[in-house]
Design a binder for these strands. Structure first.
Length: 506
RNA sequence: GCGCCUCUAGCUCAAUUCGGCAGAGCAACGGACUCUUAAUCCGCAGGUUCUGGGUUCGAGUCCCAGGGGGCGUACCA
C-alpha cells in the first residue's frame, strides 16, 4: 500500500491541514472543523479485504479481542451510532457489512469522522477487533472520504418500496435492497457457470451482428433503425439464429452466443423489449442430443449456483434433477384438459375446440396453428415441469426439421418450467428447398397482415445450399432462467435496468 | 392497446364513514453521551399533497383531463 495511513499528519496532501479552525488566516470560510465537504478526495485507494473477506477471515474471534492485523476496507457508511468519545458505524460493500469502531484517541480527525453522512463512501485502515459485545469490527486508525453522498439516502430500515424509484435509481436500490443485490450477483454467477460448462464441452462463444438487414430467426416485430452512411434501414436483431447457423455452415461445429435480442412488443412481468438469449448450435446432433444437453446444463447450473438441483420458486419447488419428463404436444393437451386432438383431427373439430376455449380462430390458420393454440391455452400454463414438450407442428416451426417418423410435425421441443417456456430447440432444418418453401409460407402470412411472420432470407438460403450438416440448436431465455434460480417473479427484478418510459420530469 | 388500482417531506407511512388548521418515524441540521447494533436522549427545521382545470364557504380527500407507476389482459420469450 503506497500510503498506509491515509490521514498521516506528515502527508503534505493531508486535507486536515487546510481546515484548522483556529487559524485566523484561514478566514471565515474555514469555520467548521467537521465540514467533510472540505476534505480532498484521493485518486485511488488500496484495499486489502472485501467486507465478506474480513468476516470469513476473522469469523471465530472472541469478544473483546484486538488483533494485530491491520486491514484496509472501503464502502459506503450505511449506519452511524455516535457515542460521544467513541462512535460505531456500519460499512457496506457489495459483499456485506462490517462495523467500524472509531474512538477520539485512535481515530484521526474523529470529529470529522462522526460528521460523515449516511451514504458517504469511505476508505478505512485499522486493526481488526471485536467489541465487548463480540461484534467483529475494524478500528478506524486512519480513514479517507472517497465520495460524498450529496443526496440523502433512503430510510435505513425501510429502504425503498416504490418500484418506480427502485428501477429508475437502481444505483440506490442496490445499496438498500439486499434481495436486489443477491439476485444480480446470482445472475452473474449463472452466466459465468453457463459459459464454463459450454466451453468445457468444446463450444466456442461468438458474436454475431445485432444490426440485421432482414429480421429473422423468430416471429416477432422488430425495432427499426437507420444507418446514415449506407442510407439503409437496419433491424435490431430478434434472434441470432440464422447467423449462428451460417457459422456451422462455415465449419464452426459448436457455437454459442449469449446476447441481447430486441422485440418491439409489450412489456409485462415476463417480457422486456430487450432481453438476453443464449443460443447454441451443435453439428451432427439432433433434438434428443439437445434435450440431454439442456437438462444437464440447467441442472448443473442450478446445482452450482443454488447448491441443489431442487430450488424453491414461490410456494412450490422445482426439481431440475435429470432426466426431465418428455411429453408430446398431444399428450400435454390430453393430460391437462382430457381433449384428444392432433394434426389428424378434422379441421372442423380443431376449430370447434378452439372456439369452445375462447380462442379467436383466424382464417389463415391451419391445423398446426390451431393445435398450438389449444396447447398454449390448455396445457402450457398448467405444466409445472420441468418437462420437455415435443413434436411441434411444422406449420408453426419454420426453421425446424421435419419429424423423422411423424408427418406434419417437426423435431422441435420446448422446456416448460413453472408454466412458462424456458427454451425452444430443434433438429435444424437443413434442406434449402424445404427452407425456401417454409419461408414462402411465412411470407404469405406476412402479406395476409401478420407482421410477425418471417421474411425470405436469400443469403441464408444460399448458405444452406453450400451444405448445413445435421445440426441441433437451442435457445434459452437467460432472464427467465435467472428468475427461476433466484425466485423472482417479474423479469424487471432480474434485469438491472428494465425498460421504462423515460421520466418526463427529467 | 384496453380495464382496474395508485401517487402526501429525501425515504417509509398517517391525516376519523360521507370534504373542515397536512402529521409521525427515519434521514438531515444543532446539542448530550467511552461498547452501540434500526443506539438512546434533548432541540430545530423540513410540503407546488404528481400536473392542470372544475365543484364548494372550504379539496390531500369529490369530478374532468393529462403524467408516472402497479396489477390484470392482448401480442410475445
Amino acid at each position: 500500500m503506497k500510503n498506509p495511513n491515509p490521514a498521516d499528519p506528515t502527508d503534505p496532501t493531508d486535507p486536515t491541514d487546510s481546515t484548522d479552525p483556529t487559524d485566523p488566516a484561514a478566514g471565515p470560510e474555514a469555520a467548521d472543523p467537521a465540514d467533510v465537504s472540505r476534505l480532498e478526495i484521493p485518486y485511488r485507494f488500496e484495499r486489502s479485504h472485501s467486507l465478506a473477506g474480513i468476516i470469513a477471515a476473522f469469523d471465530s474471534l472472541e469478544s473483546g479481542v484486538t488483533t494485530e492485523t491491520t486491514v484496509s476496507v472501503a464502502g459506503r457508511l450505511m449506519l452511524r451510532r455516535d457515542q460521544g468519545r467513541i462512535a460505531f458505524a456500519t460499512l457496506q460493500d457489495v459483499t456485506g457489512r462490517v462495523q467500524l469502531f472509531a474512538t477520539a484517541l485512535a481515530t484521526p480527525d474523529f470529529e470529522q469522522f462522526t460528521a460523515l453522512s449516511i451514504g458517504d463512501w469511505v476508505g478505512v485502515q485499522g486493526v481488526v477487533m471485536t467489541t465487548r459485545r463480540g461484534e467483529l469490527s475494524v478500528r478506524v486508525d486512519g480513514w479517507v472520504i472517497l465520495a460524498q453522498a450529496q443526496r440523502q439516502f433512503p430510510d435505513k430500515w425501510h429502504g425503498l418500496t416504490d418500484p418506480d424509484i427502485r428501477y429508475r435509481q437502481r444505483y440506490l436500490d442496490l445499496w438498500v435492497t439486499e434481495q436486489a443485490r443477491s439476485v444480480f450477483m446470482r445472475r452473474s454467477a449463472i452466466l459465468s457457470c453457463v459459459r464454463r460448462h459450454l466451453d468445457a464441452q468444446g463450444f466456442v462463444e461468438v458474436e454475431t451482428p445485432m444490426l440485421h438487414p432482414i429480421p429473422g430467426g423468430a416471429a416477432a416485430r422488430p425495432f427499426v433503425t437507420r444507418h446514415e452512411a449506407l442510407s439503409t434501414d437496419f433491424y435490431l436483431r430478434i434472434a441470432p439464429e440464422l447467423y449462428l447457423k451460417r457459422l456451422v455452415v462455415g465449419g464452426m461445429e459448436r457455437v454459442y452466443e449469449i446476447g441481447r435480442v430486441f422485440r418491439n412488443e409489450g412489456i409485462s412481468t415476463r417480457h422486456n423489449p430487450e432481453f438476453t438469449m443464449l443460443e447454441l448450435y451443435q453439428a451432427y446432433a439432433d433434438h434428443s442430443d439437445i434435450m440431454e444437453l439442456t437438462e444437464n446444463l440447467v441442472a448443473e447450473v442450478a446445482s452450482e449456483v443454488c447448491g441443489s438441483t431442487t430450488v424453491t420458486y414461490g410456494d412450490r419447488e422445482i426439481d431440475f434433477t435429470v432426466p426431465w419428463r418428455r411429453l408430446t404436444i398431444e399428450q400435454a393437451i390430453a393430460e391437462c384438459s382430457s381433449l384428444q386432438v392432433s394434426l389428424d383431427s378434422p379441421t372442423a373439430e380443431l376449430r370447434a375446440c378452439c372456439e369452445s376455449l375462447g380462442i379467436a380462430v383466424n382464417t389463415s390458420w391451419g391445423s398446426g396453428k390451431m393445435l398450438l393454440e389449444i396447447y398454449e391455452k390448455t396445457a402450457e400454463p398448467n405444466l409445472w415441469g420441468p418437462v420437455f414438450v415435443t413434436d411441434y407442428p411444422a406449420e408453426v416451426s419454420p426453421l425446424s426439421r421435419e419429424h423423422r417418423s411423424r408427418a406434419g410435425y417437426t423435431e422441435r421441443f420446448e422446456a416448460i418450467v413453472a408454466g412458462r417456456e424456458l427454451c425452444n430447440a430443434f433438429s435444424e432444418l437443413v434442406d434449402p428447398a424445404e427452407q425456401r418453401s417454409r419461408f414462402e409460407a411465412q411470407a404469405a402470412l406476412r402479406v395476409g397482415g401478420d407482421d410477425e411472420a418471417m421474411v425470405v432470407d436469400e443469403d441464408y438460403l444460399r448458405a444452406l445450399e453450400y451444405g448445413l450438416p445435421p445440426t441441433g440448436g437451442l435457445g434459452i431465455g437467460i432472464d427467465r432462467l435467472v428468475m427461476l434460480l433466484s425466485d423472482t417473479h417479474a423479469i424487471r427484478d432480474a434485469l438491472l435496468f428494465p425498460t421504462l418510459r423515460p421520466d418526463p420530469t427529467l
